[in-house]
Design a binder for these strands. Sequence first.
DNA 1: CAATTATGAATGAACG
DNA 2: CGTTCATTCATAATTG
Lengths: 201, 201
Amino acid sequence: MPRPRWSPTPQQLMILQDLYRKGLRNPTSSQVQKITTHLSLYGKIQCKNVFYWFQNHKARDRQKLRKELMILHKIHKTTSDDDVPHQFHTTPNTNNTNINLDYNFPPSTFHTLYPHSPSILVHQGEGKDTSSSSTQMMNNMGNVDFPKHCVIENGMIRTNVQGWILMMTDHMGPNSIPSCSNNKPLETLELFPIKATGSKE
Amino acid sequence: MPRPRWSPTPQQLMILQDLYRKGLRNPTSSQVQKITTHLSLYGKIQCKNVFYWFQNHKARDRQKLRKELMILHKIHKTTSDDDVPHQFHTTPNTNNTNINLDYNFPPSTFHTLYPHSPSILVHQGEGKDTSSSSTQMMNNMGNVDFPKHCVIENGMIRTNVQGWILMMTDHMGPNSIPSCSNNKPLETLELFPIKATGSKE
DNA sequence: CAATTATGAATGAACG
DNA sequence: CGTTCATTCATAATTG
């Protein structure tokens, strides 16, 4: 019975978490190999498992941090709770001639890394609220429910991708929008044409 | 006390289904926020609930469709062809002059960019770990394959991403990481300061 | 109430 | 890297 998907054993997971907690983010190939060799003592594992584990863990860690930043950025909003502002658009959106088909838009057309963000992240012991993002938003207004794997390192965010260098090798054009096979019939502003008054079923 | 798991109210579920029926699959952050805010009128809900709902609904929708198609394919199957959802095509390139452990290695795309794949992967163990003999040639071990889109060079893992190359460097800048990384916290030799406590398994 | 199902939550794997 | 897909786990809902 082949197991198509690796699942870390508790020992493996503990070691990986410990390495991550110590600061390891992008292990080199030799590091991945050593880790894999070591973890293989506790169960079947491959290098790509270790590689993916660090990729995913860092990515999801960073997602939460970015979410926190967005929440705090929009904390100024104290108006009515009917309309939720969306002031964290990743796309500059200058041509607002049409408002739709931004659904599956590649959110990062430009690869500007986050600027030196202020130290607002240390602010996290306070009641924080609504969040959302392109994909993985994990908490909401009034409810602070962080998943178990939320690891925030001293409330600091890394302003740079530690050890990664981005080099452009090809130019794909500023407006190369990958067209979806099926068109998107939904626009952002028409999600709820009706408001709280009536709920038609 | 614990609210372990969210359960949609009938109104919430109906709204979600309606949005899905209208074509919404991957709601953006602002869309999720709007939906969550709207659905909160009918019960406690978080952004992640909305997010997971769409993810799961789409996944199970697709899964069901796929199973039906699989049954259809199995009717007139019986040939030697194998049906795989992904492109696990093991590139039959045989110009691999390297060791035998990189069968899962990058496709030909990377060989054009980096014509030579050094074999440092096997014996890169520059120094020696503090523990006993653990680093050795793992030729025929099954734990040494990296993701297919990666190439190893000089102890670095390069990932080709569509016009971009993310080069993961081994050494970090002297003052690059202020938060949790010291200048040299992650040496290979220090990956496993503790020996494997052969506890279980 | 035990067993089964439906589905929220999580995460490994991979894409772009 | 950020995002998306596929699979697995955990548990509320349902059934008998």
